[in-house]
């Protein structure tokens, strides 16, 4: 059975969540039997809770700063490896140094003779850095697409346009966004991003399949516009289904009819 001294001693632990289940029960039992002390709990809670205040949301600049730093680190890592190689070369044995010097002179000679052929090692390194940057950017897209904030998800879709190559995972993530995201603007952006890869048959099929999954007139119209641009005959069937559906918005129905005419 807890007494007042024990009660007083573990009050802060109780409020701060540092008490064991057993002690919580004992303290609550003590309070039940001595309700006059509940004021002391209130008092500690007042001080405990009072220190927490409203915290603003960090701005998008923080994310941009972080991911830029992360990219820079990657590039630095690659640069460092070149320096390390040079350092190793300079600090290597005399035998090695002479050997490398001869090799460099020979390479230099042949390079001088035929400037128009061959790829410089620096170029291949730049390629490597580009690859790494692409990989970080892809990771950024996938991470941001999972964020609860619609702005972050929009940022993710915009990042896709900066990618030189998209992976299947990114395409799948974009379709997941297009078909399931709660925010219309994010879904519209996903259409825009996917339209850049419409030459991939799977993307085309996915876009057509998405027409009937959409409920927002804005998204339906955006998809119809895209299908007209792509002159995608396969989409007509989906347009006709939408026209037949009772729930479809009148403007959308009209748009679908116009789109069918424009595709044929």
């Amino acid at each position: 059975m807890m007494n007042y001294i024990e009660f007083k001693d573990c009050l802060v632990d109780y409020v701060s969540g540092n008490l064991s289940e057993e002690k919580i029960n004992a303290l609550e039992l003590f309070l039940k039997e001595n309700p006059e002390y509940s004021k002391e709990v209130e008092e500690v809670t007042f001080f405990w809770e009072g220190i927490e205040e409203e915290i603003p949301e960090p701005s998008a600049a923080m994310d941009i700063g972080f991911y830029t730093m992360l990219n820079a680190q990657k590039e630095k890592k690659n640069n460092v490896s070149i320096f390390t190689k040079i350092e190793n070369f300079l600090l290597g044995s005399t035998f090695k140094r002479v050997g490398y010097s001869i090799a460099i002179l020979t390479v230099g000679f042949f390079l001088g003779k035929s400037m128009d052929t061959g790829t410089l090692p620096v170029e291949s390194n730049i390629e490597e850095v580009k690859k790494e940057t692409e990989s970080v950017r892809s990771q950024l897209v996938l991470t941001l697409l999972e964020q609860p904030s619609a702005n972050k998800r929009l940022q993710a879709v915009n990042e896709v346009t900066k990618l030189n190559k998209v992976t299947e995972t990114i395409i799948q993530a974009l379709f997941k966004t297009l078909n399931n995201d709660d925010n219309v603007n994010v879904r519209l952006s996903a259409i825009e991003a996917l339209s850049n890869y419409a030459d991939i048959p799977l993307v085309r099929e996915g876009l057509i399949a998405s027409i009937l999954k959409q409920e927002s007139p804005l998204v339906q119209i955006a998809l119809a516009d895209l299908m007209v641009v792509l002159q995608e005959k396969e989409a007509i069937q989906s347009f006709e289904k939408l026209i037949d559906e009772e729930d479809t918005n009148e403007s959308v129905k009209q748009k679908m009819e116009e789109s069918i005419e424009r595709i044929i």
Binding site: P58, F66, L70, K74, S135, V136, Q139, L140, Q147
Partner: peptide, 18 residues
Amino acid sequence: DNHTLGLLYERYKKRLFG
């Protein structure tokens, strides 16, 4: 695997900022 840091950043940025 430095890019994994992005995931930790997303998990901790708010707590650290707060």
